[in-house]
Design a protein around this nucleic acid. Structure first.
Length: 321
RNA sequence: CCCGCCUUAGCUCAAUUUGGCAGAGCGUUGGACUGUAGAUCCAAAUGUUGCUGGUUCAAGUCCGGCAGGCGGGACCA
C-alpha cells in the first residue's frame, strides 16, 4: 500500500497547480475519494482532452473513484447544438474516453440525467443569488464561445458546474487551466450549498498545432485520439515548430506532457547524415532542442512515431466497437 | 405592442448614394524558399447577398411580407 506522500507526488506530476496541497491530505484519508472531470461533448476528442484523461487514469491507479461528466446541458448552453445532437456526440465521446484506458469501474454520468432535479435546481438558484454577474461572466472568459450576442446561458453555465460538484460529491475536481476561474468560484461557494469543498487540480493547456493559443476542436488544430497513422504524421509535419524555441511550441509540449510523463527515455530516429539516432531524457531533449542541436524535423518524426504508438490502442478499441 | 437600424465568401467588411458582370483584407488550398512548420514571395479556390413575394430589359441595391439580431419607446411604477 502506497503512503500518502507517494500518492501526492503522483497527483502533482504534470499538473500546474493543486489547490490546495493541505486539503489533499484529508481527501486521501478517505476510503475511496472521488475525482471528476466534466467535458462538453465534442466532435473530436483530442490530445488536450487526453492530458486530463491520463491524469484521471493515474488517480484511478491510486484508488480514486472516477466520475466523468458528459456535460450535455453545458454544451447546449454553450451553443454547441441541439440536445439530441449532443447526446449522440456524448456516446461517441464515452467510447473515446474508455479507449484511452480507463477501467470499467469508471462512472460516466450524462449531465441531463440529474441536472434538472429539484435539489440541483435549488442549488443553482442559491448560487445565482450569491454570484455577481461580472464574476460569473469573468469565470467563463476561457470557456464560452465568444459571441456578439452573449446569452444568459453563459452565466448559468458556471453555476451549474459548481452544483455538479455537489451533486457528484467530488473530492477532486480536475480540469485544464482554462477551468480555473470556475473552479475558484466553486471553492468559494460550495460550502453554502454542500459540505465537501473539492481540491482543484489544473493541467496545462496544449497550444494548437498551428501555434494558436489553444488546441480546440472548433479550430481544427488538434490531433484526435482516433486519428489514423497518416493523419497523425501529416498533422505533426504541418505543425508550427520553430527551431530552438520551446515556448508555445506544440511539438515540444506533446513531448513534455505525453512522452516524458510515461517514460524516462525517448528514442528519436535520425538519418546518419544528421548524426544518427538519439536516446534522450526530458532534460537532454530540452537542452539539445534549445541549442538547435536537434532539428524540428527529427523531433517531429520522433513525436509522430510516439503518438502513432501511444494512440494505437484507441484506434483498435474504436475499430472493435 | 410600436418606431428605427442591421443581416453580403469560413471571418471582418466594401459595393446601396445614382439599379448595369458581387469585391477586398484576413483565413484556407497549392507552389517557391528553407533539412519541419512559421515568416516572406507567387498562384488558386470559395457566394442560395437571411428567407420570400413583387417592380424592372436588368435587383445585393427599389417596394411588400417573414425570420433573426441591436437600440429605443410604450405598458407598469
Amino acid at each position: 500500500m502506497m503512503n500518502i506522500e507517494e500518492k501526492i507526488k503522483i497527483i502533482e506530476k504534470g499538473t500546474l497547480e493543486v489547490i490546495s496541497n493541505d486539503e489533499l491530505n484529508s481527501k486521501l484519508e478517505k476510503k475511496q475519494p472521488i475525482a471528476y472531470t466534466g467535458y462538453e461533448p465534442s466532435g473530436k476528442i483530442h490530445l488536450g482532452h487526453a492530458i486530463t484523461i491520463a491524469k484521471l487514469k493515474s488517480l484511478q491507479n491510486i484508488g480514486f473513484k472516477i466520475k466523468i461528466l458528459l456535460a450535455d446541458y453545458h454544451a447546449f448552453l454553450n451553443g454547441k447544438g441541439s440536445v439530441e445532437e449532443i447526446a449522440e456526440i456524448a456516446k461517441y465521446n464515452e467510447m473515446c474516453f474508455r479507449a484511452l484506458g480507463l477501467t470499467d469501474d469508471t462512472e460516466f454520468v450524462l449531465g441531463s440525467t440529474f441536472q434538472t432535479k429539484e435539489e440541483y435546481t435549488e442549488n443553482v438558484y442559491k448560487l445565482a443569488t450569491l454570484t455577481t454577474l461580472s464574476r460569473a461572466k469573468r469565470s467563463m472568459d476561457q470557456v464560452s464561445r465568444n459571441s456578439d450576442n452573449p446569452k444568459v446561458a453563459n452565466v448559468i453555465y458556471p453555476l451549474m458546474q459548481v452544483a455538479d460538484m455537489v451533486a457528484l460529491d467530488v473530492d477532486i475536481a480536475l480540469g485544464g487551466m482554462e477551468q480555473r476561474k470556475i473552479q475558484m468560484l466553486a471553492r468559494e461557494n460550495i460550502d453554502k450549498i454542500g459540505d465537501n469543498i473539492p481540491v482543484c487540480i489544473h493541467t496545462p493547456l496544449l497550444h494548437g498545432l498551428d501555434g494558436d493559443e489553444k488546441m480546440s476542436s472548433s479550430k481544427g488544430n488538434f490531433i484526435a485520439v482516433d486519428d489514423n497513422e497518416k493523419e497523425i504524421k501529416n498533422k505533426i509535419n504541418k505543425s508550427y515548430c520553430p527551431i530552438g524555441e520551446l515556448d508555445g511550441n506544440p511539438i515540444i509540449e506533446i513531448a513534455k506532457y505525453f512522452i516524458f510523463t510515461n517514460q524516462e527515455k525517448f528514442t528519436i530516429k535520425r538519418p546518419e547524415k544528421f548524426g544518427g539516432d538519439l536516446t534522450l531524457n526530458e532534460d537532454e531533449l530540452i537542452d539539445m532542442y534549445s541549442k538547435e542541436e536537434l532539428h524540428p524535423m527529427d523531433l517531429k518524426s520522433g513525436v509522430s512515431d510516439f503518438l502513432i504508438n501511444y494512440l494505437k490502442p484507441v484506434r483498435e478499441f474504436m475499430e472493435d466497437d
